[in-house]
Structures are given as C-alpha cells and as structure tokens.
C-alpha cells in the first residue's frame, strides 16, 4: 500500500524532472578548445548584481549568449543574480568569497563607484579586476509633450526663481545616476540644487506613468527607458548627456548639454570585472574573448537593438577611465552636499 503510494510520488517527480530537463540544458557547450590548455575547465559564472530583467542582468545575458554561441568561451557561462543594496551585496560577495577565483565574473556600471563614494560599502572598483568597458548609454532630460517648458533653459530659469516650483523625477534613488545627471547640469546653471524636489520611482515604467500623470514636471532617466514614449510623441526631449548628438533617428534632434552651454557629460557605462587577484591567465583569456566578441556582427546587432553606444575599452585604459569617472562623480556628490 505504502510502496504503491511512494511509487506514485516517484513517478510524478520523475515526470516533472523529465519534462523540465528537456528545456533547460540547451545552450550548454562542453567542447574543449585548444587555445587554453588548462583554462577554462569549469563553467564561468557571471554575476548580475540585480534581479532578472535589470540592466545588469540584460548585459550579463547578452554577453554570455554571444560568447558561448560563437564559441569564444568554451565552457558554459551561467548568469547568477545576486541582487541587493544597489549592487553592494554582490560586491562584498565577490570581494570576500571569490578572491583569486578564475571562474567568476561580474557586470557593473556607475553605481559601482557611487555606492563606494556615498559610503554604502567599504569596497570599491579597486578591489576588483577590471577587464573591459563594454558599451555606454546616456542620460535623457525631458518633459511631457504639452509642458510649458520648451527648452532646458526654461526649466533652469524656473528653478532659479523658485527651486521648489519644478518637480524632477527619476528611476533611481537620490544620489544615484538619474538624480546626479540632472542636478549636475542644474548646479552649473546656478540653481540651488539642495532645494529642488526629486521624486524617485521604481523603474522606468512607473517613472513614465508619473510624468504622463502629472506627478513630476521633468524626467531624468536613461535614454533607453524613454525611447518608446519619445517615438509616440508623448515626451519632448530637452537634453541628452552624451558628448555629441546621438545618431538614432528618434534622438538626433535633441541637443546635448554642451550645446546648451553646460560643460558636462554623463556616461552610463557598463563593464565586466573579475574578482580580486584574478589569475592572469584567466584575465587574459576573458579579455581576449571579449575583444573578439566586440568585433562580431551579433554584438553589433545587440548594441543597435538596445540602442547602446559602442565604447569598448580594454584593460588599462578601462582602469584609467574608472579613475577619472570616480573623481568626476565624487566632485558632483560633493557639490550637491551629499558627501563631505
């Protein structure tokens, strides 16, 4: 009687297992490659410091997909999501538990610098092994299509007259990218930025609902989040933070900050890092694979699809870039009085 019952459970379980096994194991590739005799032998885990669907996650999945599909890396590259603390949780995990590891990589962007600068974590990019900058996105400042503000100057003048009169909204917290990129521009125009109300929304969708529903007057967010509304004509662009105009059809008429007399750019870069003291052979192997990847048509197609700008920067140049960015962000945060 009991055996029978147990048999039923086993049957059910094995059914489940068989059903699910069929779908999950695709995308794995166990063939060895002659280029590196001893490395890699184990799957290389790529950590996305936020949940599925986030920018980091998307980056990690796009990169691993091309690397394994084009056989640039000969082992499987599972993506592991370690969300928390704006990336701080994953950072302390990698620094503390993965020192010298050869089978772990992690994807980051400016918050890696910000969480260190504003004291959320004691670890910084200097604890990691920077491998390459992959691409960049830029920030966008805009208003609803029927807004009384026609230019960025209109917004800035209103803010100068009364800092509380215009509500700014972004999809990240105060002191993070959406907030900083706008306030950096406003500070240069002489606005008392500490008094400007800033509403932070959870994600681009809510932010846009807030803009269209009139909760905020000005939106500051990444270009990628706003494209759909821009195309539909619901939103008018006032500025982008790139050094030059963006090429996309929908964006080419939006002025850069520089064109409007504000000497600033804000780059939302994404890069790939190894753990602290990553062995050189592993670092070189990955760096080579990435260098080959950025030349593939698949990678170019991915960049176009998500409207990412190719700003690939390998090795030491990437480290130099990070040093500059760190100084720049520190300056902005100090200006805003967010750090001392």
């Amino acid at each position: 009687m009991c055996i029978k019952k147990y048999g039923f459970i086993a049957l059910l379980l094995s059914m489940v297992i068989i059903l699910t096994a069929g779908c999950g194991s695709s995308g794995r590739n166990k063939s060895a490659e002659p280029a590196a005799p001893n490395y890699p032998t184990q799957p290389i885990t790529v950590i996305a410091p936020a949940g599925p669907g986030s920018g980091w996650d998307l980056t990690a999945r796009s990169v691993t997909q091309i690397l394994t599909e084009k056989k640039l890396v000969s082992v499987a590259m599972p993506v592991e999501n370690r969300a928390g603390g704006g990336g701080a949780v994953a950072l302390s995990h990698v620094v503390e538990n993965k020192k010298g590891a050869e089978d772990t990589l992690i994807v980051y962007s400016p918050p890696l610098l910000l969480i260190n600068l504003n004291g959320q974590t004691k670890f910084s990019y200097k604890d990691l092994t920077p491998i390459a900058k992959l691409f960049s996105d830029y920030q966008f400042i805009g208003v609803k299509k029927d807004s009384k503000f026609k230019t960025l100057d209109d917004v800035m003048n209103a803010l100068k007259a009364d800092p509380k009169s215009v509500k700014i909204g972004g999809a990240s917290s105060p002191g993070s990218m959406d907030h900083l990129s706008f306030m950096m521009a406003a500070a240069q125009k002489g606005v008392n930025v500490k008094e400007v109300p800033y509403l932070s929304f959870q994600g681009g969708g809510e932010l846009i609902a807030g803009l269209l529903g009139g909760s905020i007057d000005v939106v500051s967010t990444s270009v990628g989040d706003i494209l759909g509304q821009l195309e539909a004509g619901n939103v008018r662009g006032l500025a982008v933070t790139s050094p030059e105009r963006l090429k996309d059809q929908r964006l080419k008429d939006i002025l850069t900050l520089k064109e409007q007399g504000i000497d600033a750019t804000f780059e939302v870069w994404r890069g790939i890092f190894g753990p602290p003291q990553m062995p050189d052979y592993a670092k070189n192997y990955i760096a080579d694979a990435i260098a080959k990847m950025v030349e593939t048509d698949e990678w170019r197609a991915t960049l176009t699809k998500y409207n990412w700008q190719n700003t690939y920067l390998p090795g030491d140049d990437f480290v130099k870039f990070l040093d500059e960015q760190n100084q720049l962000l520190e300056g902005i945060l100090k200006n805003l009085g967010l750090i001392k």
């Binding site: 949940g51 669907g53 998307l58 994600g203 969708g205 609902a209 494209l227 759909g228 509304q229 699809k305």
Partner: peptide, 30 residues
C-alpha cells in the same frame, strides 16, 4: 498598461517587456 503604455506592472511584465524589445518591438502607445 504594458501593451498600450509600455508600463510593466510586475517583475514578470518587466521581463516580457525585455522580450518584446529583443524582437525590436517597442511596447508603448505605438
């Protein structure tokens, strides 16, 4: 809201939004 405004209502919806974009389809008013 996902199909007409491009507003994902939940984490799953955000992921579906990503799937749409992967196919070059921008969920939103258009």
């Amino acid at each position: 809201p996902l199909l007409t405004l491009g507003l994902p209502g939940s984490a799953t919806m955000a992921l579906l939004l990503g799937v749409f974009m992967m196919w070059g389809i921008q969920p939103g008013p258009l």
